[in-house]
Design a protein around this nucleic acid. Structure first.
Lengths: 187, 187
DNA sequence: CTTCTTTTTTAACAATTGTTAAATTTTTCC
DNA sequence: GGAAAAATTTAACAATTGTTAAAAAAGAAG
């Protein structure tokens, strides 16, 4: 459980008045496990901050689901492709647990970004932090074996293994479920 | 060959006066093939826009070089880790051709980002675009075979094969040089 | 042009990961 | 609790990719 205000501040410090202003524009909602938040080939109008729960983003390749992102408390579900280029997205975002979201219209957020230096800076830092995370994850895939990637995840985010099905973790780690099971069985 | 003004505008439209102001803060320099632009475990004070030439960023893992980024005309060499966290970096950036850079003090750029909404927006869009590129590259690694990654690169950036050594391309594609050679030999 | 150095290819073999299918375990639902 | 469905593990085998070493090709220097 992590409240929206903390999530926002953890990206970059902001005064309370600015945050209050944003919070008034958003709304909270609870959605059930299994619900699909974003469908592929559609436009997404909301950004969601996760207060509790877990979601995964996946796409299809050669008839199989590929889970490329997992989000939990404090993470931000931001459909960058739609937001930046007005393009439809290729991903499905599905809830793996009941979730509490704090949701904001991307339109409202963009308006803040384009009119208020403080929010523009916040938006910049959000993208910069996501970029660093993605780059670190990418580099570790570029030269680590399946077993090394598994060990790294166990070390860095052990709680994932208690909350998320192994088939999704396997995909997230870039291997088949059978390979993950084999690696786990070795110990 | 791509001039700095075009590179800046291609991230996000900006008025000429704003760009002129930035350009006055920077300086051009020519560096020779083989020169190292960033050393690991050091602080990087400059952002470089590549007007011509090719560079690669690499790091070491298990005694081997891993090339994780290639930049050419129009690309921006931005040491995000140093810039965001004041941390030293893990990467080496090396010139694979003679290069013409337009270089700016990160300090100057940050000052613009923090004082001018137009530049803050430009900085946000820069990070957002880099994020999308990184995410697309990452997803394609998550579920494509070595051969598919090779075919994709041939299709998307064929000029790379005329300008960059195959050993570096192999690493960039997440495979050994021998594997790349084998894949190329199959046709 | 010739020699030396570096890069790339080829080959044989080893290790890792994928595929398919069946067995087992866990979860869901009545 | 018990049946059905879903998830996970196990096993056998196939395909891909890595490793090492040597040969061939390409590039640099005199």
């Amino acid at each position: 459980m992590k409240n929206t205000r903390e999530s926002i501040i953890s990206i970059s410090q902001l005064d309370n008045a600015s945050i209050d202003h944003l919070l008034k524009l958003g709304s909270k909602r609870i959605l059930r496990k299994g619900k699909v938040l974003f469908h592929p080939k559609s436009y997404h109008h909301y950004l969601h901050i996760i207060e509790s729960g877990v979601v995964r983003a996946y796409t299809h390749y050669k008839g199989k689901e590929v889970t490329f992102w997992l989000g939990m408390e404090g993470d931000i579900v931001f459909p960058y492709r739609t937001y930046m280029f007005g393009k439809t997205s290729y991903e499905t975002v599905e809830l793996l647990e009941d979730c509490l979201f704090h949701s904001f219209l991307i339109k409202d957020l963009l308006h803040l970004f384009e009119s208020d230096l403080k929010w523009a800076t916040w938006g910049r830092k959000l993208a910069e932090k996501e970029l660093i995370k993605m780059e670190e994850r990418f580099i570790s895939y570029l030269f680590k074996t399946a077993k090394e990637r598994y060990n790294q995840l166990i070390e860095q985010k052990p709680e994932i293994f208690n909350r998320i099905q192994l088939q999704h973790i396997a995909s997230y780690l870039g291997m088949t479920q059978v390979s993950l099971s084999r690696i786990r069985g070795e110990y």
